[in-house]
Each structure stands twice: as structure tokens, then as C-alpha cells.
Design a binder for these strands. Sequence first.
DNA 1: AAGCGCAGCAACCGCCACGCC
DNA 2: CGGCGTGGCGGTTGCTGCGCT
Length: 518
Amino acid sequence: MNITTINDASNDENGLVSMISVSGGGGHGGVEEVALKKGPWTMAEDAILIDYVTNNGEGNWNAVQRNTWLARCGKSCRLRWANHLRPNLKKGSFSHDEEKLIVLFHSQFGNKWARMAALLPGRTDNEIKNYWNTRVKRFQRQGLPLYLDEHDQPTRPTIPSPCVTPTRSNTNTFIDSNFLHQNHHGYGHNHNHVFKSSLELDSLVLESKSPISPTAQQSHHSPLSSPLNHRQPPSSSPHHFMDPTPSNSNPQLSSLSFTFQKPTSVLDSALRFKRYRSYPNFSLYHLPSITPYSTSAPSDQIDLDAFRFPQQHSSSFSPQYFQTPLLDYERIVSPSTFVFSSKLEQHSNQFSQPQLQPEIMHHDIEFNDPTFQTSSGLLGDFQFDAQALASGHNSKKRSYFSLNEGNDVFDGYQNFEDTYWFSTSGVNPKEEASELSKSMNEDIAKFLKVMPSTMQGTEGNNNSEAEVSNVQSSSVTIDDNFGLDMKPIASLFPLTNATNHNKSQGYYYYWDNLPGLC
DNA sequence: AAGCGCAGCAACCGCCACGCC
DNA sequence: CGGCGTGGCGGTTGCTGCGCT
């Protein structure tokens, strides 16, 4: 089918319409013209798109235009869905923590908006891009270096990347001194806000020849330029923020000199990132698509205590940042939870957030059921969900139910504030959940296998210790929809050993030193 | 009140990668 | 192997609201 777009700005309520010629299909060469609308989406269009995706799943966006009267091109539909209509989108301005993360990510990835979005659940690449562009404009106008946090003192010098002198040939890194000041857990003296890691690391020294004022730095290192632009070669691993400690041994190093840590081979593999891609048969009402693995340790051999995500006590940490990118539940809400805003506006982006969408996506759970006492943090939740589903276990805040929505019946279960919906295919939810549980357990096992051994508390955890002894890669692929790059995650969350949590199976590691989130 | 600049946001466009045939 | 369709990504544009003059 050939589609020709003809711009015609004369015949649309918004003054934006394109005429496309749709030909082919039957070989008659017949051409039917379809007016493709452009411009802002209306609520009616949104409703059509939501309905279509609900019934047909994501993907095949051009079919939307073919199968509905929605006169939008596939790209426009995909964009509208991804940026405004899909569940779990977080609207509103970025929090300060998110802003810092964006700066952090940009210093690592450059203009890789989609990549950043994958690390900021609920945020879209477009949002991040817009935020960054706005930030660029603002900082440029104010003459501030881009990688200087706006809440910090503007006089704080930034290490410009051209002056960075790695001591190891395989390192090409940029680190902004700004980030070295943002962790308040405190190690060292002059630069006591450094990132403490328990990883065994090589060290490298970054040296700044001289302090550079923001103004001077601007001319030297344009705020518009990402550190990535200065990397040679650009394809090298942009691994930064690794456990910097003051370097006082070298008298040539000024206060802008730091020694920070480079991970060993475990975290040294190439950055790996995988685009999300929907299954062709993806259903909006499916629980997460999990690809079973044939060889994995059963879950009962995995001590999930060895892997804990941040707890509430860490004031600087927002665990929801990493919930979605790590293990994307595809938390789905019923279309009934889409409600129209009472405030009528011209555009149609006023669907309120799904009411069931949790503002805080993580659960910090203390279960009474000993079955789940070993599960905590993200993986714990993950396993909990699967096991509870499989077992049919109903905790106080979890229940199965069905919901009649017109002619449709949706099966679901509720876990605290979160509601999960899954298919109405007739599969017994528990059977489906049982398979899901197995797959999840296998995924968790696989996940743990490739985790750096230093990320796992191994005391009293011989099984997993053995499993992780031959770690070769830091990348984890949970399924086709999911690629996890452990490296930036690990570098963002240096591990500390919380020894005062004396559970029977050993000690925990906490990810509680998120830099820049204080 | 009008004009202007700016911030924020939504959406489009071009390019490219990938899979399929 | 090349053409084609599809989708993803990054750059860019345009619109709207708001504050300031």
C-alpha cells in the first residue's frame, strides 16, 4: 500500500489536515483518499485509540487508521499512545530528584532520551527531551554550565572533559564535580560527598588542570555540548560516577582532582540496551510477558535477601525510579479508570491519570505470611506477586476478582493500591499465574545469576553464591521486552552493607547511596 | 491593554534499524 | 540481496499560557 501525504491546510477544524492516497490491496490500482488529520488530538480521537489498543494491543499502528475511522497516521497514533495515553504515565513536572537523574543520565548517555525514559518510569522521552531543551535554554541564558545543578552554587567549578586525564587507557570518562558533592553519606574530607561502593574496583584519577569559572567554562566547554561529544571514541563505555574519593596523594591535583573507581570486569562489559518491543499478540490485559527459560534454578534456591532494593529509610532514594526498568510489570489498569477531566480544554490530553495508578509504585511490605518474609524490595515484590498468584494466597490487601465492563469480563487481582488486570481469554487466572510464577522465578534466578557477586550477600546463601561465581556479564535480559544494563544501575546505587539487619539468613545490601538525590 | 519574551508542552518530520518477503 | 512496511528515536517546530514591561 502506498500512502502519499498531501498537505492541505484548508479543510480542518485545526487547519491541519493531510490527504493521503491509499492504493493497492487488490491490484486494482484504485485510489481512495483518506484525509489524515494533524495537530492536537481530540478526546474523541483518544477514546478511539484507547479502545483500539485495548482490543488489539500495541503495535501495527498503521492498522489503526485502516480499521477505525481515526484519521491519523500510524506514527501519530504510536506517539499519542506512548506519550499520553498508555498506562502508568506520570504527569506533572519533574521532581527535583528526577531532574537530578536526568542531568546524571545526560552526562552519561548524551541525548539518548529514550534510554533515559527507560530509567525514569512513567516519563517519556519527549518529556525528558523537552525538559532538557528548556534547561539548556535557561542555563545558556544564565551562563551556567549545564551539568551544574541549578540549586548548587553557581561558582562551583565543573571539570571540563577536555581536561580530564584518565590514568587508564581504557577509560574515557567525564565527571562533573557537581555530582561529587551531592551524596551526603559522607566519606572523606574535602570531598566528603563521594560514592562508596563495596565493589572491588580499579581506581582511576581524573584531573582538572585548573578551576574554571562557569563563564570561562562556557566558552571552553559549551553548555550545549554533552560530555558525550568529547568522548573519544564515542562508542566507549560512558561509565561514570563510580565511587570517587579524594585524591590527595598527587600534589599536582587541585581540589578538583578526584580518584574514583572503575568497576572490574563484572561491570565492564559493553553497555547494552534493548528497545522495548511489544509482542504481536500483546494484550493490554495481560500480565507481564515473561519468557520462560529452560535452565534456571528454582526459586527456592534463591535467597532474595541477597538482593535488596532501597528501603524507606533511605531518605534520598526513590525506588520507583527503578521499578519499571528493572522488571516492568506492565501494570495495567482498566479502561474504566480512564476518566475525562472535568476541565474541558481544546486538546485532548486531559485524561486524568488512571485512578488505580499508584503514585508510589513500590511496596515496602512486611508480610505476616512467612512464605514471603524472604522477599523484599523489588524482586521480592516480583516474586511475591507471582507466588501469591500461583498459590492463590490472599493477603489482607490482595484479592482476585472479576469485573464486568459491559460485555467484557476482566479478571484481575489487587495488591495494595495496585490493580493488575489480565486476560479474559478464559484461562484460569491461577493457572496462568502459576505459569507466570514459574517464569518469574526462573527470570529472577537468571537475573541473580548474572548479578555481580558483590551485589549479593552470600553468607548463608551458598546456593546463590555458587550460582553467581562465574559471572561473565553485567547485562541481563529478562525477556524480549526487557534489557537491563546493570552497569549504570550499579553505579548509581553503590552498595553498602547494612549489618544491623540481622536476619537469619545473613546480611543485606542496601542500595542507599544514590548520588545526587539528597 | 497590548506587545513581547519565555517556558512548557505537544506533535511532526526525517532518518534509521529491523524484520519480512 | 534489495524492496517494503513498520516502528523507534532524536531534532525541530509550533502552539499556548504566563509574566513582565
